[in-house]
């Protein structure tokens, strides 16, 4: 498989995952804000902070209100991480890798990006937003399902999984981080206990994890088990540990993967050594999540150096 094609497939998966996560995040956030007491000072701008997009946002908008945040995250072509731009990147990458991904990928990607382009206003206005975001999420899942059902599990597939698992792990750290920020803000509030519960529940929902959490952890929503589930569970596809294990499994199926495997194993060792179980959403957890994000950057780098090297 050509290095360049592998790189593009890897990015298809990352962008696709980003589209789905962003859509899900916005739709959950809507819910969250409805449920919290009006006195609570959590606003839409948090979504910009989660995604580390403050600089880009501040350059474009002076008012940090709902409309601008949503516009920036969904439809802004100057924001490379917006749903619109990400889908455009998916489309460009699919267009240049049509020889390795199933034919239907191209058609479905086209359909989805056309839908977003034509209906972006539905997402910006609250009334139809839910429906709009749902359509995007379904579109992403349709493509993933099609790939899962029809793509041979050889090299292109492994690159798709690498991209997806790395982006997922990273998104889980970001959503947890956002939850932690909200959690800390709420600590001085009177209705805090109830509100904190709501925040935790929404963290789980943002990661599609609430049902699985209840079934596997057999617990009410409490910080200790939630963190254990999202950080250490080995079976849930969006937990950090699951994603890291998968990255390792994907890498071993690819040629010349020694350095990547080494890096992933090192990180796993490191995490095992330093982890005392986290039971609270506090600044220590925040630091830990930050460390994970740094690791994810390093994993990305070693993947690039190994399989997408510049030969000259």
């Amino acid at each position: 498989m050509l290095s360049k094609v592998a790189e593009r497939v890897y990015w298809i998966a990352r962008y696709m995952e980003r589209v789905e996560s962003t859509a899900r995040l916005i739709s959950i956030y809507d819910n969250l804000l409805f449920d919290l007491p009006r006195s609570v000072n959590i606003d839409w701008y948090n979504l910009i902070v989660i995604n580390s997009l403050e600089t880009e946002f501040d350059q474009r908008y002076s008012v940090k209100n709902e409309r601008n945040v949503i516009k920036f995250l969904l439809g802004d072509s100057t924001n490379p991480a917006s749903v619109f731009s990400s889908l455009k990147s998916v489309r460009e990458n699919v267009r240049t890798t049509r020889d390795v991904v199933p034919e239907a990928t191209w058609e479905l990607t086209n359909e989805l990006s056309m839908f977003v382009e034509e209906n972006i206003n539905q997402g910006i206005n609250r009334r139809q937003r839910h429906e709009f975001l749902n359509h995007i999420i379904k579109g992403c899942q349709q493509i993933l399902g099609m790939l899962y059902g029809s793509m041979p599990h050889d090299a292109p597939w492994q690159f798709l999984c690498l991209g997806r698992n790395l982006e997922r792990a990273d998104m889980t750290t970001r959503i947890l981080d956002a939850g932690t920020t909200a959690y800390i803000v709420l600590s001085d509030d009177d209705g805090a206990i109830n509100s904190r519960q709501i925040v935790l529940g929404n963290v789980l929902r943002s990661l599609c994890a609430d049902q699985a959490y209840r079934r596997i952890m057999r617990s009410t929503i409490k910080p200790g088990p939630v963190l254990e589930f999202l950080l250490d569970n080995t079976d849930f596809p969006r937990s950090i540990t699951f994603c890291h294990h998968s990255l390792l499994a994907n890498s071993t199926k690819l040629p010349s993967s020694k350095k990547v495997i080494q890096k992933l194993s090192d990180i796993q060792e490191d995490l095992k050594r330093n982890t005392q179980p986290y039971t609270e959403l506090n600044s220590e957890l925040s630091q830990y999540l930050n460390q994970l994000q740094i690791y994810h950057g390093e994993i990305h780098q070693v993947i690039c150096d190994t399989w997408f090297p510049r030969w000259d």
């Binding site: 498989m1 050509l2 290095s3 360049k4 094609v5 592998a6 240049t96 049509r98 020889d99 034919e103 090299a155 690819l254 040629p255 010349s256 399989w307 030969w311």
Partner: peptide, 27 residues
């Protein structure tokens, strides 16, 4: 795609001293 052939650009290929053409792959 229909032939199952690799789609390459010039930058994906290299000619080595044995005067053979090679493509840059993940392996």
């Amino acid at each position: 795609q229909r032939m199952g052939a690799e789609l390459v650009e010039g930058s994906d290929l290299i000619v080595q001293s044995d005067n053979c053409v090679y493509m840059k792959t993940i392996a």
